[in-house]
Amino acid sequence: MIEVPLRTTRLLPHTLLGRIGLVVLAAAITVLPWLVPSYYAELVTSAMIAAMLALSMQLLVGATGLVSLGHGAFYGLAAYVVYLISPENVALPIWITLPVAMLVAGAAACVVGLFSLRTTGFFFLMVTLAFGQMIFFVFHDTKLGGGTDGAYLTKPLISAFGATLDLPRKQKYLGTYYVALVQLVAMYLGLAMLLQTLFGRALEGIRVNEHRMRAIGFDTFKIKLIAFTLAGALAGAAGHMWALHRGFVNPEIVGWHQSAEALLMILLGGLGSLHGPILGALALTGLGEVAQLLTERKLLVEGLVILAVVILLPRGLAGLGSRNTSNGAGDRHG
């Protein structure tokens, strides 16, 4: 039997250099809060949470070829779940809040997927948008989560192993920072493993040619539904973290622009890699900060930079380090 040089899945870093780069990035983020003022550490926490949302969305966009505008709603929903299940003045341990938030977000995604995944392309975009907005209006128009104003979590702190992270006010941000980092790394590694399974191959097949996948005997609807549900649950983990980090919820985090922003991060970082969304989230957060310092027209500057990156780097920031510049057939390697 001839050996099969198996390329790793297209979305994972191909070169040793790429892998080392990721480890260096993780190490840099690990030591960062000890080197910079707390303001910047909290900014990076926000960026890591955004990265988790974008990463969960990459399972749909980059891996399966599904562009959903309802993805952000599962993120926001999970944040509200944390608010709704947290009793007054006591912190629930994270191993209760996190699974519950992920479960609710995943269940919501499963229901939305059941309806929306029967459509494709533009219609899929519209149906997911409609479902997302329905979830938005539940929180916007009812008193469930404080209505339009949102609500504060009475005790926004992280509790685990019986001990709460009720650190002195000054160091509390460190707890959130590292919990977010651990989750981000776990999500990346989990997705990297998933993409290397046969299931990951099936997702790739669907992205490339779903029609052919059905003809060779794949129940593509079921596969897409599993991916959609999983992505929803992972978005839930990001939303959960957002609630713990910010300590409040408001309808804005459920709106469709959350999906749009995550999509921008994916575009900026690169559609063709799993780490792209992380780079995109860090870059977009940093860009927003710089733009705010330099000008009053923050959004305009952001827009122009994103436009420039998309035009100049078709494979996003993640494509910067790789020699291989062509798409499609070009990314094979043995």
Partner: peptide
């Protein structure tokens, strides 16, 4: 094409 018959659960658990 050869993979299509692998069950979804099994496909989630086997490395390609």
């Amino acid at each position: 094409a050869a993979q299509a018959r692998t069950g979804t659960l099994a496909s989630l658990l086997s490395r390609a």
